[in-house]
Design a protein around this nucleic acid. Structure first.
Lengths: 216, 216
DNA sequence: ATTATTTTTTAGATTTGTCTAAATTAAAAA
DNA sequence: TTTTTAATTTAGACAAATCTAAAAAATAAT
């Protein structure tokens, strides 16, 4: 069984592995709001527990055991996010911090019952997939909105940025999950995108478009 | 803001205050599964934070501030217990350990929304009152079943023992909250009680009767 | 191929909560 | 009232997770 802190490290390493493998000490330090020296200490501990493979000065990768533990934390985090939005009427920009705490509650029964209560959701409020109890993800295929061409259509099914300011911005523009959009024009000057959504025409920056995920 | 551990101490001191005030170091140590020396250390810390009044060798009492904090933890604990039973189909003997963890999640919004979602319950699955957000309890009047005389009737509205074996025992006997009972006989020999419940006649020990709370 | 820079690690200290063992105080018994 | 016993506190140590400052290794630049 891992401590609260160990779980946080495993989760961060899991997320960073997608971007670069092995994961650098400094990138963990940045994400976990701590110093590189502290990360080195913890990595050694996780390595002793065989949750990560660690080569000095190279970085870490998760072992099979570590990966399973990490996916389990992600599963709990995302299930709680669904609960907060669906049952307690939280907005999608309010759930992250609370889910960061709830994800560490240790009870298999709790997680399985919660999953059942929520009717086995496949994605969280940001469109991220929820792994099942064995660690399997439904494979969802996304395209960044910024990659769509003029006149292409699609449905908003996810976001790749979870900060409150970003999510509030999308909410204000009406760009929420499940909405149907069409790219009406791509502005040469700044790469911003003009969209058609529910018969309205709106313009979003390239930066915003990059973080909106579309399925067709 | 208090740490996880500090919150646990406050909660235990709060519960023990009902039995004896001031609360002794040893009784805290026993309940919190630790040594008296550790309790002394923590008490000093809580005293510095003005959460308890502490007189060496005498014991501790909660300050107004400490009492409010403690009641808040009790509130969260009991709300989560209701959630687990009502929404996730936990049995009343399965909720305690998980609620011990959930009670420490820090989010006012979470607690208030949970309360609302559960439709502002007044008691938890063991019949214990749930304080409102200002710390006020609905005053419920209980009598121990062991105090009832022959032929007296009442409704089971609480238990004063929360251990899983005890609660499972009651469940098996059909002695659950809301059930109507009548004392048909009190056995002189061992003080055990014969009850009428739903046209069945059952016998419970004096020990068990002491921990069943009745309202009329 | 050196030198400079960045990244990572080590060494030693700090904080929180805990412990054991010894010392102190309070309460009970003689 | 003195002695014995029980409860509590102090002193000093320890584990977990963190930090700063300095050393070491890897990478980039000249």
């Amino acid at each position: 069984m891992q401590s609260f802190t160990e779980e946080n490290y495993l989760k961060i390493i899991y997320h960073l592995s997608v971007i670069s493998n092995p994961v650098q000490t400094n990138s963990i330090a940045e994400r976990i709001q701590t110093k590189a020296a502290s990360v080195t200490d913890m990595i050694k501990k996780l390595s002793d527990k065989e949750l990560v493979n660690y080569v000095k000065y190279q970085g870490v990768t998760l072992t099979e055991k570590g990966k399973l533990a990490a996916i389990n934390i992600v599963r709990r985090h995302r299930l709680w996010e669904v609960f907060l939005v669906e049952k307690l009427n939280f907005k999608w920009d309010q759930v992250h911090e609370v889910a960061e705490e709830l994800e560490h509650i240790k009870s298999t029964l709790l997680v399985e019952r919660l999953d059942e209560f929520l009717e086995f959701p496949k994605v969280d409020p940001h469109g991220d997939p929820i792994p099942d109890q064995y660690g399997n993800f439904a494979d969802l295929s996304f395209v960044k909105l910024s990659k769509l061409k003029t006149n292409e259509k699609g449905t908003i099914t996810g976001v790749s940025e979870h900060s409150s300011p970003f999510l509030k911005h999308l909410e204000k523009l009406g760009l929420t999950l499940g909405k149907r959009i069409e790219v009406s024009e791509i502005i040469d000057f700044d790469g911003s995108v003009e969209l058609l959504i529910e018969d309205r025409k709106i313009n979003i920056s390239k930066e915003v478009a990059k973080h909106i995920l579309i399925s067709k």
